[in-house]
Structure formats: structure tokens, C-alpha cells
Design a protein around this nucleic acid. Structure first.
Length: 495
RNA sequence: GGCGCCAUAGUCUAUCGGUUAGGACGCCGCCCUUUCAAGGCGGAGAGACGGGUUCGACCCCCGUUGGCGCUACCA
């Protein structure tokens, strides 16, 4: 099909995750299409880290994303870890480049310095909201003359750089699967390109990097569709040829809302820890990208690479159906030899160091070797059975238990590194917030983590279980007790 | 609220104006079987609604409804 702005150009695609949290299955999904499309055309697939948000990006998250993506089996031709001719591949290391291009836009008159304070912008939006009109920058600073603008900037007044948008006219975004999608320029905001910290926003960095890295096809999530006019305009301002655009539907929760960890496990590493095979996960995601030939639902990345057709990707947001993933994984498990099954199981959760640590923790609690497996089974299980009744032995009222579970879940999410120390700090902190002795509180977590009140030490167990399994068990326990209402979520201090 | 995307069974999908609307997961039943699985066979189950266009609409157009996204000095 369609798909190249210039047939002479080598096809190059990329996946550009932001290291602001756990590696997300959506990232694997986007990576998979980009990989297959590039390979289908004998091109390159690159990985770029979009860490321009200094406040939220962490090196831990970047490492986790790289590791998770590597686990899937996908590989990239260029990236922060493997290098390449268009580096650096980490946006935080490219600030000077963006600054230069922002200056170019300023000089050409396609952008302007905006000195508005956050307070003024808030007030402006509040007024717009109250008036029921469209919320966007009112253009106050667009009229500031070049000399005054330069003078104020030189005087050290803080500012951001915003792009100019034509007052009238229409921008037609040509989406591979959707065809032309028109946007009135009047509905496009004068987007901030360079923040007051001197770093670019996604919009600028993304366009500059895609051009410099010679990306020919941008295949990304649907959440970017409404920003496409801005991006296209930037290519125009710079005089660059824009890439072919394709927006993928977003993965959904069973209730059709956008896949979120509040309602579902979304972490790639969760699926790894649950014991899914990466081939099965990729196969599952591939099923959402290319219709299976009649009855042939089991296929690998190579086959998907042959059959992928961007224009035919189904556009309805697909529900991430774990039951189907389970079936697929079972098919893969049955297809490999018993020998390989053993190897993979050992590699998955029975490496010597892990088993040794578990054994040493269990030692003082067992009297027979036959006690070992039953007493540590919860560390190897995916989910544990927890019901309302499981919490009967705790001394806290049910609302307190729910709050304890919710706070632990949210605060643990906010921890950069997930280890014993972090777990201890968070759980004891919850005890203080609730005003209960940790001794009385701990049982709640033992139950949520193990399904019973007897287990190996809690903090060790949680570290051993890992962030993703822990969150899921907390979530399941919370659901078993009725979940959290929106009101409580607000009252308990979580946005 | 504004702008945009989307709409076939519970879920993932096929159909590119003419089909008894096909397949897969899940569910139910039967077979196999020392149990349970696995496997085999079978079954129930779908075009959101209302208007057009057409000899003929799931398919094309308009509207309604619903879902989703964006609406940040986050990506």
C-alpha cells in the first residue's frame, strides 16, 4: 500500500517511550508494529527515549523499559543502548539541538516568546471554561515586538517559546488508515515548544528528532492525533518533508476505557512475572494488528512482518483480553518440548540466587522438607485467592483496610525503586497516616500478598514478588473489599 | 463545553453493495479418558438507532446515541 513520501528513502520507524513509569504493554504494541513495518520494507527500527520531562523521567524507568522491550524479543537497529549514526538517542542529551531549532523558528517569525505567568494562564483558562468557549492560549504575547521580546529575555524574565498558528484555514492530516482528517487551524492551540527550563516539549523534540533521525513513518497511539496539525505545521515551518502518519487505536480495559493500571495490569513486566512467554504476548498483540488467516491465530513476528498492512488495522480500540492471552500462552507452552519448558521455567523464577534467598527465609519456619513448597508457593504463584473473609482476622474495620491497601498501592507506585527499604518505608508510613500500630496493620498486607496470615517476612516477600505482582495483588484485594470510590480517592489524597 | 477518532456476538476479528454474516477466545454439550486438563466434535450468540442513496445495504451519505482521545511550561 501507500506508504512512502518518497520511494527512494529507506524506511525508518521508531518507538519513543517516555521513561516516566513502568514499561507499558502499549509500548510493546507500538514497538511491534513499528518493528514489523520497518522490517517489511527492509528498513530500520529505532528506539528513542523521550525524557524531556525532567520532573517525571527517571533513569530507573528508562532501564526498566529497555529491559522489558528486550524481553519481548524485539530488537532495534539504533538506540541509547546500541548507539547508531543519529545519536544521541536520549532527548535529554540533545537540548542544544532543540534550542537551535527553536531559535530558528523565532527568527523566521514562526514562533514567539511568551512571558505569561502560570497564574495568568490558569485565570485565562478558568474564564474560558466559565464562558464555555474553547480553551487555548489567547495570543497575548504573540504581538510583542522582536526588540522588546529579545530585551525582556535578555533581562532574565522567564519565558516559554510558543509556535504561531494560522488564524484561519484547515490542516489536513493524512492518516494511513483513516484517510484525510481535517482540522481547523482555529481549533489548534499555540503550543509551547520550549519550556522555561530550556527543554523542549514533546512536540518540538519529536519533530526535530524524527527529521534528524530520518524517520519516514510515524506510527503512534491515537492520543497524538489531535497534535498532528501542530507537528505538520512545524515540518512546514522548517521546510522539511513530513513523515507518513498512522495513528493506532488505544488498548482498552474490559470496560472499554483506556487501558490503565487502576483497572488492569498494564506492565510488560507483570506479564513476564505471571509466566507468559514473550512470543505469546507478541502473538496476542499481533492479533490486534493483522487479521488472522482463517484458523491460523498462532503466528510469530516474522509472519506478522509479512502480513502487516497498516491501512487494514482495525480502528476500534481493542480490549486487552487476558483470557485470550491465556489460551495463546497455553498453546505456546504445549508446543515446546518438555526439556525447553523446564529450562524456561527455571529461568523464569527458579534461578539459584532467588531460590537460595527464599530457602534461607523459609528455613526457620519449616520442620520438614515437604513444608518448603507449600510455605513458599505464594512467591511463585501469579494470583492468590483473597476474599472479604480472608481479612476476618485483622483488627481493623473494613474501611480502614481498604484505605490501607489503596494508600500502599498508590505510594508504592510513586517509589522510584522497588525494594525492601522502599516497601518498609511506604507501609510504615501508611500505618502512621492511619494512626495504627504497624503490627496491627501488617496482617492486612500479609493477607493481600499471600492469601493467608502465615508467610515469610513481608518486606522480603514483596521485594521477591516484584512491583507488578505486588500492585496487582493489592488491587485484587482492594476489589475483593469493594474497591475505592472516586470520592474516597480524592479524600485519601490521590489525584 | 470545544475539537477529533471509532461503532459486526461477552471479547478479538472477516466481509472491500448481492454470503444461510465466516473464524478465534470465552461459555454450554458430547466424545476420548482411572481424575483433571489437553485434544476432537457440536451448540447458543452479532451488524447501536433513525433516515436516505440503490434493483439490492453490515458495507456508501446524513443525523442521533454511545465509547474513546485531545483540550498542560506531561508525554
Amino acid at each position: 500500500m501507500s506508504a512512502s513520501p518518497n520511494d527512494a528513502r529507506r524506511v525508518r520507524t521508531r518507538v519513543a517511550p517516555s521513561p516516566t513509569g513502568d514499561p507499558h504493554v502499549g509500548t510493546a504494541y507500538v514497538a511491534l508494529v513499528n518493528y514489523c513495518f520497518a522490517k517489511q520494507h527492509g528498513g530500520d527500527f529505532l528506539l528513542r527515549i523521550e525524557d524531556t520531562d525532567q520532573a517525571r523521567s527517571t533513569p530507573e524507568s528508562e532501564q526498566a523499559i529497555l529491559a522489558a522491550l528486550r524481553w519481548t524479543g524485539l530488537s532495534w537497529d539504533e538506540g541509547p543502548d546500541v548507539g547508531g549514526p543519529h545519536g544521541p538517542y536520549r532527548q535529554s542529551e540533545r537540548s542544544k539541538i532543540y534550542k537551535r531549532y527553536a531559535d530558528e523558528l523565532l527568527e523566521k517569525g514562526h514562533a514567539f516568546r511568551c512571558f505569561c505567568t502560570p497564574e495568568r494562564l490558569d485565570a485565562m483558562r478558568a474564564a474560558q471554561r466559565a464562558a464555555g468557549t474553547q480553551q487555548k492560549y489567547d495570543g497575548l504575547c504573540a504581538g510583542i515586538g522582536a526588540e522588546e521580546s529579545a530585551r525582556r529575555a535578555a533581562a532574565g524574565e522567564p519565558y516559554v517559546v510558543r509556535m504561531k498558528i494560522p488564524a484561519t484555514g484547515v490542516c489536513v492530516v493524512n492518516d494511513v488508515a483513516r484517510g484525510p482528517v481535517p482540522f481547523d487551524y482555529s481549533s489548534v492551540d499555540m503550543q509551547v515548544l520550549l519550556k522555561s527550563d530550556g527543554l523542549p516539549t514533546y512536540h518540538l523534540a519529536n519533530v526535530v528528532d524524527d527529521h534528524l533521525m530520518e524517520i519516514t513513518h510515524v506510527i503512534r497511539g491515537e492520543e497524538w492525533m489531535s497534535s498532528a496539525p501542530k507537528h505538520l505545521l512545524l515540518y512546514e515551518y522548517f521546510g522539511w518533508e513530513p513523515p507518513v502518519l498512522m495513528h493506532l487505536p488505544l488498548l482498552r480495559n474490559p470496560d472499554k476505557s483506556k487501558l490503565s493500571k487502576r483497572k488492569n495490569p498494564t506492565g510488560i513486566l507483570f506479564y513476564q512475572r505471571m509466566g507468559y512467554l514473550p512470543e505469546a504476548l507478541l502473538n496476542f498483540l499481533g492479533l490486534l494488528l493483522a487479521p488472522a488467516p482463517e484458523g491460523q491465530e498462532i503466528f510469530g513476528v516474522d509472519d506478522l512482518t509479512k502480513r502487516l498492512d497498516l491501512a487494514k488495522i482495525s480502528l476500534g480500540g481493542p480490549v486487552f483480553d487476558v483470557a485470550k492471552l491465556d489460551w495463546l500462552n497455553g498453546q505456546y507452552l504445549r508446543a515446546i518440548s518438555t526439556e525447553e519448558l523446564l529450562e524456561r521455567t527455571l529461568a523464569w523464577g527458579f534461578d539459584r540466587a532467588r531460590v537460595a534467598r527464599i530457602a534461607s527465609l523459609a528455613k526457620s519456619r519449616v520442620e520438614r522438607l515437604s513444608d518448603l513448597v507449600p510455605s513458599t508457593a505464594y512467591l511463585f504463584a501469579g494470583c492468590v485467592a483473597v476474599t472479604k473473609e480472608s481479612f476476618a482476622g485483622t483488627k481493623l474495620p473494613v474501611d480502614e483496610i481498604r484505605k490501607a491497601l489503596a494508600l500502599a498501592m498508590w505510594r508504592l507506585d510513586a517509589e522510584r525503586t522497588f525494594d525492601m527499604a522502599a516497601v518498609e518505608r511506604v507501609l510504615k508510613g501508611v500505618g502512621e497516616t492511619l494512626g495504627v500500630k504497624f503490627r496491627d496493620l501488617s496482617r492486612v498486607y500479609y493477607v493481600a500478598m499471600t492469601g493467608s496470615a502465615t508467610a515469610l517476612p513481608l518486606f522480603d516477600s514483596m521485594e521477591l514478588l516484584g512491583r507488578d505482582i505486588v500492585r496487582e495483588r493489592l488491587r485484587v484485594a482492594l476489589e475483593a473489599l469493594g474497591g475505592v470510590t472516586a470520592k474516597e480517592q480524592k479524600e485519601w489524597g490521590h489525584s
